[in-house]
Amino acid sequence: MFEFCADPASLEGISWFACYLTTGKHMSLYWSILTVLSLLLITAPTALLFGFAGASAARSGFAPLRWLGQIYVAIVRGVPDIAFFLFFVIALDQGFEYLRHQALCPDWSEPIRQGNDFIVCKAAKLPLSTAPQWVHEVYGFFLAVITFAIVFGAFAANVLLGAMRAVPQAQLETAQAYGMSRRQVFWRILVPQMWLYALPGLSNLWVILIKATPLLFLLGVEDIVYWARELGGSKNARFTDYPHGDWRLWYFLGLLVFYLAFTYLSERILAKVNRRLSRGQGIVGATP
């Protein structure tokens, strides 16, 4: 990156580190931080949407919808995350390819499953094998967002369901007595007030989501932990201009600081949000 990096063997001290920390490989590490942050920023609202839909469905008056909501929450919460991330994603990916295969290659005669192999026609591959690598990475990222949103949506649904039940029944009845319909009561009385009750649970989920991002590597997205492990591993002078011993400890300490700082910042912001939501609320649990 810098001009003086042309001959790394002659460098020492700060200039060595300046060059070492700006290699293409380290750029991948810095890039992966952005990947993780953007994953969080996209996943959190999506998961909240899933959760809201799940919670609304689970308390619906229409039985099949209610069952659907309850089944979603029960199944996803019950399956270990790692199993979900290993099997569901491959199934989701193959499901997409199967649908595209049916639509794009109707005259394909060979079976899709041949022994262990899963084979769809070339046009149905997702992404196409001709697509550049970054398209594959974006697709993996997209699968990750869906999977994280489904998993965390189920937990959020439970939190929101509890929050909805915590809003005093008397208020809802009063609203009905004023002549509001079920829908009006839900949107005008219940939803605006439930957030205060939901916030502690949701902030918990947010912190767990931050810590769950290393699962990204299971989905083929190279995250911070992958790069820290890769960069920290001992490097032999035969294969690199910057040989060093086992430095994983330092890289993982860096990760520790990153995650701690990030959760600390989140706590501060969530505390602010909590204060803002509590303003003017005369109900139990509100902090003045």
Partner: peptide, 28 residues
């Protein structure tokens, strides 16, 4: 791009581990 079936010749995707020098590794 992913939904338009354009073929620019055969692309073979080579899978490797990238952590086993001298066989394969990630360079600087």
């Amino acid at each position: 791009a992913a939904t338009s079936p354009v073929f620019a010749g055969d692309v073979v995707r080579m899978g490797t581990e990238g952590a086993y020098p001298p066989y394969n590794f990630i360079n600087d």
